[in-house]
Each structure stands twice: as C-alpha cells, then as structure tokens.
C-alpha cells in the first residue's frame, strides 16, 4: 500500500473525528463501553445490547455483499450458524473452553464454508445467487438436523461459558459478573474490531472494486477486473465476519439449535436488518440490527401476531424507504440543516 493512501486514511480518520457524526459515533462508543456501569443498567440491558452488537456485526457483514457488491444472499445462516455450531461441537467433544481458541475455530469454520459455498454460488448473480445460497445453506441445516447423534438434532448444543485467557470468570465472579464484566466487553471489542476492519476493507481499493462491479459488472469486466473472483472474495469477507457475529451470538445465548441459527429464515432476518438500516450506508445495518431486535421484542410483547408486524415493516421499508433508517436519518439531518440555515437567514 502506498504512502499516499496511508496518509489519506489518517486524514479521513482525523476529519471524521471532528465532524458531528464522527463525534456522535465516538460518543456512542464511550456510552457502549460504560454501559454496564451506568445507573439503572441491569443484566438485561447489557444482554440486549450485546445481542444487538453480535447481530450488528453480521448485518454489516451481510451488507458487504448486498450494499457493496450487489449480491443478495439467502444463505448467510450457513456462516452465522456454521461458526456457532463449530464452537458448540468443539465444546461438546473436546476439553477446550478458552475463548481465544474458540473464536478462531468459529471464524475458521465460517471461512471454510464461505470459501466452498461462495465458490459455487458466485458463478451466478441476482436471484440465482440468492437461491443457490439458499439451497446450499438449507442443505447444511437439513444435515445438522439429521445427524442427531453427532449434532444433537433439533435440540441443538449447549454453549457453556468459556474461560478468557485461561481465567474462569464465571467461577470467580458468577455468571452475572462474567456477562457484564467480560463477555460484554469481548463482544464490544469484537464489534469494534470487525466494524473497523470491514470499514478499512470497504474503503480500500478492494471495496472500490466491489462497488464498480455492483454498478456495472460489464464495465468492470471491460477494464480487466476478474468479476467472479472478486465476488467470491466479497462472499468470503462477508461470511467470515458473519461468523464472528455467530460466535458472539452463541456465547451470549448459551445454547444453539438448528432452528435458531441455521434455518434460512435467519438469513432472511439478516437481510431484514440490512434493509431496515439501509443498504446504501456502511453503518446503516448497525442501526438496522438494533431496530430489528428492539422492534421484534416490542412486537412480541404487544401481540401474538408479531410476524405480521415484522412482515409489514419489512414490506413498507422495501417499498417506501429503501434507504432504511440511515436514509431517514440523513433526510432528517438535511431537514434540520435547512431549518438552521433558514433561521440564520432570518
């Protein structure tokens, strides 16, 4: 990488820290880090925030494909659930309990799946890509359900709390201490690192190449970009980070079943989060994950017909606000600016 891009990047980071949105992001990070110590925060708020962050990693990763590469995947449950199950099966069959061993294993599993499934799927685009991903991931789901004696079938596998750097915090601090003092920060850290890495990827020449392919595959091909290979790379990057989200979800949830992590409706949910947040924006899907989980939690409390509520929201967003929450925020921001300008003029 040339000197120029490095300097450029530094400037971008410096700039972004001085803009209002950069400050807001920094504020959110500080708030996130301090959350367990805020007055009135209980275990549940910490759990919920951690859950949103785990899904946010996966949703942003999902959007690497949908927003940046123009590929809709209906098979991301394979990566999300594949990594979660890798962790679960290692816990079930070995004595390994260490987070710093489990995480790489989960990521590796997602990477292997992404390499294979991606290699097959990127030969097609548009709806064929979506359907091939769907078929292959559903195959993984069916096989996991079928291999009852090995995988526990639909009962799934328990995910006991791991040690972190060799220390069994659950024994030392109790589960609540572990959740609020260790696991939560592990997830926040995984979130920050994943988001930063993906942001760097997407703003590197790699990301720009993907955007070129998205906007016009033919033109990309004409200027010598190996389109299929880049789509494959994008699928792998997306799959790996979805896997990070899957590992974090598994550790947090304490139990995984094929129905909750491998079924294709989980892929649909990731798509839902990305669209809800806004596929046109890098950070949008984070808001999407948060909005989705809070919305669903509220809808479930409100009515037994909460599927209807979720379906309606998804439909309305796709039809009327394709830019999602990010689009709404942007529009609101612009409106606010206009108002401020008007005031000034007056």
């Amino acid at each position: 990488m040339s000197q120029d891009t490095d300097t450029g990047k530094r400037t971008v980071i410096q700039d972004s820290l001085t803009t209002p949105s950069g400050l807001a992001a920094a504020g959110l990070v500080v708030l996130g880090l301090g959350l367990p110590y805020l007055p009135g925060t209980g275990q549940f708020e910490v759990f919920l925030t951690a859950q949103i962050l785990a899904f946010a990693i996966a949703a942003v990763a999902f959007n690497v494909l949908l927003g940046y590469t123009g590929l809709l995947s209906f098979g991301h449950a394979a990566f999300f659930g594949g990594s979660a199950y890798a962790v679960g099966l290692v816990l079930r069959y070995t004595e390994i309990r260490e987070l710093f061993v489990l995480l790489p294993i989960g990521i590796l599993a997602a990477a292997v799946l992404a390499v294979i499934i991606g290699y097959i799927s990127v030969r097609h685009t548009e709806v064929y890509y979506a359907l091939l991903m769907l078929a292959l991931s559903f195959l993984l789901y069916v096989v996991t359900v079928k291999l009852y004696t090995f995988t526990g079938g639909t009962d799934g596998v328990p995910i006991p709390s791991p040690t972190v750097a060799g220390v069994d915090y659950v024994a030392a601090w109790g589960y609540s201490g572990f959740l609020q003092g260790v696991l939560y920060y592990a997830i926040v850290l995984a979130f920050l690192v994943s988001i930063a890495l993906m942001w760097v990827f997407m703003n590197s020449p790699f990301g720009l190449t993907l955007k070129t392919i998205r906007d016009s595959p033919d033109r990309a091909r004409a200027i010598g970009i190996p389109v299929v290979r880049y789509r494959w790379y994008a699928t792998i990057v997306s799959g790996v980070f979805t896997g990070v989200g899957g590992v974090m979800y598994a550790l947090l949830n304490g139990h995984v079943t094929p129905g909750t992590v491998l079924h294709w409706s989980r892929s649909g949910e990731l798509a839902f989060m990305a669209v809800l947040g806004g596929v046109g924006s890098f950070f949008g899907p984070i808001a999407g994950a948060g909005a989705f989980i809070l919305l669903r939690s509220e809808a479930q409390q409100l009515t037994e017909y909460w599927h209807f509520v979720m379906g309606l929201v998804l439909f309305l967003v796709v039809v009327f606000e394709p830019a999602g929450v990010a689009g709404l925020v942007k529009r609101g921001y612009r409106k606010a600016n206009e108002l401020i300008d008007e005031r000034r003029r007056e």
């Binding site: 798509a271 839902f272 669209v275 599927h307 379906g311 309606l312 998804l314 439909f315 309305l316 039809v319």
Partner: peptide
C-alpha cells in the same frame, strides 16, 4: 425481500 415480508403477513 418485500415478498418475504408478505409471507410473514
């Protein structure tokens, strides 16, 4: 995606 919403409804 939109019809995924419709199926839920």
């Amino acid at each position: 995606l939109a019809t995924f919403g419709v199926i839920l409804m």
